[in-house]
Simulated scan of single mutants.
Amino acid sequence: MGRVIAIANQKGGVGKTTTSINLSAALGEAGKKVLVIDTDPQGNTTSGLGLDKNNIENTIYELLIGEITTDEAITKDVAKNVDIIPSNVDLAAVEIELIDADDKEFILRNAISNVKDSYDFIIIDCPPSLSMLTVNAMTTANTVLVPIQCEYYALEGLSQLIHTVNLVKDRLNPELEMEGVVFTMFDSRTNLSLQVVENVKDHIEENVYKTIIPRNIRLAEAPSYGMPINQYEPKSAGAEAYRLLAKEVIDRKFN
């Protein structure tokens, strides 16, 4: 059965989409079968994996409102061993569409239940808000992975996110666990980055991944070419970091 990881942080610009794209590609490169689900109306994970988000007929929006099947929603082989359920701006309307829906917190979970066993990992890129889409991701997920940017306000919002995870665990998905925290945009030349890492480690009890994602120009460039970093610049520091993170994720054991 596939392990479902929601990549969430209500702060924008922390490396959430970068991690969704490149962790998925690195897991695929390691021989794992991966499904990426883009639940962000901005659709950046979709375009970062080479799809034209403005010209896709079958997206997660059509899946959530019941217009298409899960198989119809999946675009195959966007990277080695990686499939995707894409997203675009249409998804912004879904909360209004589903306002009166029964069990609306479980629509995504129910939608992918028939394909879950076909994948080793399902990676869900969440929007940068604690919205119904994020709650759907968390009711679907086994674990939540939180990217944190190495900046002064890194801890701001983390306690709120952990509170949300605990609420979802208590009320909707008792199986949900924290996958852990991964540091992104780390600049070894600055004392600030080092201080942030130590500060976060001191303040949280959650698993902190040993792999730290560096601030890397190639990593920033890759999405504009519609490629994960392991395709765009396979020998870069960013590509190597995501391979190490993928190995840690694969090796991580849960009760």
Rank of each mutant, 00 (worst) to 15 (best):
M1Q: 09
R3E: 08
N9C: 03
K11I: 00
G12V: 03
G12I: 06
T19Q: 00
S20I: 04
N22R: 11
S24W: 00
S24K: 02
A30C: 08
G31M: 09
K33W: 10
V34L: 10
T39M: 15
D40T: 04
P41Q: 08
G43F: 11
T45A: 15
L51S: 05
D52C: 05
D52V: 05
N55C: 07
I56H: 09
T59W: 06
I60D: 10
Y61H: 14
I65W: 06
I65R: 13
I65C: 08
D77N: 15
D83R: 07
S87E: 13
D90F: 11
K104G: 07
F106L: 15
F106G: 13
I107Q: 12
L108W: 11
N110L: 14
I112F: 09
D117V: 12
S118E: 15
Y119I: 06
T134S: 04
T139W: 11
T140F: 12
V144T: 04
L145W: 02
Q149V: 00
A154V: 03
E156Y: 02
I162E: 04
I162H: 01
H163M: 05
R171V: 02
L172V: 04
P174Q: 13
P174D: 14
E175P: 00
V181W: 01
V182A: 00
N191Q: 12
L194V: 07
Q195Y: 10
K201F: 00
D202R: 14
D202T: 13
E206Y: 12
E206R: 06
N207L: 04
V208S: 01
Y209F: 14
N216M: 01
N216Q: 03
Y225E: 07
P228T: 03
N230Q: 12
K235H: 08
A237E: 15
G238M: 04
Y242C: 01
L245V: 02
A246N: 03
D251F: 00
